[in-house]
């Protein structure tokens, strides 16, 4: 009973903060509302018995990604919007279309039936659901059944890192660096040249 009530509260605040995240005036409020939305969705995660995921969400999403957003907002010096602009958005036919879309999706989703199906693969999951912690349970599934996916995700992260570096990498042309190979391969023959020439004769009258 209490949990139901909690679910509704979390859901409401989640929706409200998501709206703020999108339609607020101040860009900083946008990002901070996003963070709030993530917190409350973490709350819902906990209600759904996925506490590990809840905290992972907070650490990664809020701690890393949303902060990054904030960095960018501060760095790029994004100006505030005016209220008129925001309200203007709601007057377009696009918004009506969006509302219609929302209604449609909701109607569709309400038609979903409460089904439970049994699969050979999920047999394992079914049994180990109640006895262990969430992290344990995820680990049991992740490192065994979905091991390949796990590796691939690592690869994705790797590629993302390379991508980020490549994007901002500038080759600096004016820096002089040591080329060790060249240094070691230098011999007397290709670095010294002995030139013989006659001495310069001084003017005898100068002395």
């Amino acid at each position: 009973m209490f949990l139901d009530f909690l679910f509704y509260v979390f859901a409401t605040i989640l929706l409200v903060s998501a709206s703020f995240a999108l339609f607020a005036i101040n860009p900083v409020i946008n990002v901070l509302s996003l963070i709030l939305a993530m917190f409350y969705s973490a709350g819902i995660f906990v209600l759904l018995r996925a506490e590990y995921l809840a905290f992972t969400l907070i650490i990664i999403y809020v701690g890393a990604v949303a902060v990054l957003f904030l960095f960018v907002v501060m760095m790029l010096n994004i100006k505030k919007r005016s209220v008129k602009e925001v309200i203007q958005q709601f007057k377009t036919p696009l918004f009506l279309f969006g509302l219609l879309l929302m209604v449609e999706i909701v109607l569709l989703l309400l038609k979903a039936k409460n089904i439970i199906y049994h699969d050979e693969l999920s047999h394992l999951a079914f049994e180990s659901f109640d006895g262990v912690t969430n992290a344990h349970a995820i680990g049991q599934v992740l490192y065994t059944q979905y091991f390949l996916c796990f590796q691939l995700v690592g690869l994705i992260l790797f590629v993302a890192m390379i991508g980020a570096i490549v994007l901002v990498y500038e080759k600096r042309t004016k820096v002089r660096k040591q080329n060790i190979k060249k240094q070691l391969l230098r011999t007397k023959k290709n670095s010294l040249q002995i030139v013989k020439f006659a001495p310069i004769v001084k003017n005898p009258e100068v002395e």
Partner: peptide
């Protein structure tokens, strides 16, 4: 997508 959903509904 909207049209598809409308159709299905």
């Amino acid at each position: 997508l909207f049209l598809m959903f409308a159709y299905i509904l």
